[in-house]
Design a protein around this nucleic acid. Structure first.
Lengths: 244, 244
DNA sequence: TTTATATGTGTAAAATGCACACTTAAAACA
DNA sequence: TGTTTTAAGTGTGCATTTTACACATATAAA
């Protein structure tokens, strides 16, 4: 192994020097923000209001700063746009094609976020250029953002089948139909109502309330909440896996 | 959204400036190299021969250069150490804790690699400090490398169950027992021989040769090869999923 | 010829996945 | 007040998959 291929950072005798400065790069964070309005899966995009690609849609993003790690940068970027923190965020993939950003070399770490659209009305901050798109008819995006979204959708699909992250996209109280709508949106296929309910119930992590949501039908639909403590206890004690 | 939070790279009117230079960082690539010797899953580590942490073990790594993307950097780093290219590589996760490298701020993108240990005897390059460890008794590593390895193992486990990547760790011809050993190592649990063979055969992507490996028992064991074309055709035509 | 060793092979029971259709509650309306 | 309308709510049988499990075989070495 050649000396110069060693990570200089692991060699205390070599300090910040030309070689390293030379190879420093700009690191960005881009966020794929998924939302759910109890009917359809959405994605939050912003419209570029400057050239080039003016009028084209894009993910929100920002640059990593010296005093934060990537997770923190993603939280900051998300909060800047939506005014919200306490949002489910997960690192997705790092994109580094040399010409991915024609302006200059930028490496971007993609994160995806899950938000309940209705509970989170972006009161605090005015974002004229931001818009929720139905995931099925989202527009073409700049750079490699389409690829990021594709990967995020795949990741969400996989996660939703093995972790109870779906509840991040729902209000605290929800109906079975809404939960099923969510899974149908994420998986992009119709599910059988009875089988779905049986499956969910067999997992034994929901609490059925006495309360009904009457807005949705004459009969009204029972509301449920996700019992997070119960879920976590099951995971810890029995190695339980949420599997849909 | 504040102007300074916009990604400057998306604004053609703002060129490389102080703000950006300020926020540039060093990007490293670290490789978790898994190997298999027909018996046990291994990991390739190098011993640091300089302070601090002299004598401690570490993943191999290097810095991203201006003229390459991360995948290329990982290939280069791997080739530098092992003299080999054409190795299965997959990006894992990006690590960015501020103090992860006490020497200086470094963000590291972890990759994992899969190698057949026996077919790849590192003739070309002398690496005194490199050593294959059985995955079960690998030593403690520097920085956050332990965490990287943990995540790589989890990823490998998941992938091995849904993609035929196991064959990357085996020679072209292998016995059923070797394949089972591999899966037992990856999944870290014993499997039933008959059920394993039935399952593999039902996937219908292996070709049983007339040839036997006589080194392994009195009776000898039939050799198999993975029929990659057949697998890819099935994937394309029937949406087949390799599922173990 | 015997012995030792790892290979190779099938079936039955259990668990899980999947398809499928009618009743019910309550509001709206006649 | 009865009839209609709408979505909610509920259980079973069949098919598939998964799991548990034990003995015969080929061959080299003694």
């Amino acid at each position: 192994m050649l000396e110069e291929d060693l990570k200089v950072s692991e060699n205390p005798n070599m300090h910040l020097n030309y070689y390293q400065k030379e190879d420093q790069v700009l690191l960005a964070v881009d966020c794929i923000i998924f939302g759910f309005d109890k009917e359809n899966l959405k994605i939050l995009l912003i419209k570029r209001n400057f050239e080039p690609e003016k009028g084209k849609w894009s993910l929100i993003g920002g640059f990593l700063k010296k005093n934060e790690d990537l997770d923190e940068a993603a939280v900051r970027v998300l909060e800047t746009l939506t005014g919200l923190n306490d949002i489910y965020l997960e690192q997705l993939h790092t994109y580094s094609k040399i010409d991915r950003d024609p302006g200059q070399r930028t490496i971007s770490v993609a994160y995806y976020a899950l938000i309940d659209v209705d509970s989170h009305r972006f009161d605090g901050i005015q974002i004229d250029s931001a818009h929720w798109f139905d995931i099925k008819d989202a527009p073409d995006l700049i750079f490699d953002h389409n690829e990021m979204v594709r990967k995020a959708k795949a990741r969400l699909r996989r996660r939703a089948l093995t972790k109870p992250i779906g509840f991040e996209l729902l209000p605290e109280k929800f109906t079975m139909r809404q939960l099923q709508n969510l899974y149908e949106s994420i998986l992009d296929k119709k599910l059988d109502k009875r089988n779905f309910i049986n499956k969910i119930n067999s997992l034994d992590v929901l609490v059925k309330l006495d309360e009904k949501d009457m807005s949705v039908s004459r009969k009204g639909a029972y509301l449920y909440i996700f019992d997070k403590e119960k879920y976590e206890k099951k995971v810890e004690e029995d190695g339980f896996i949420f599997k849909l």
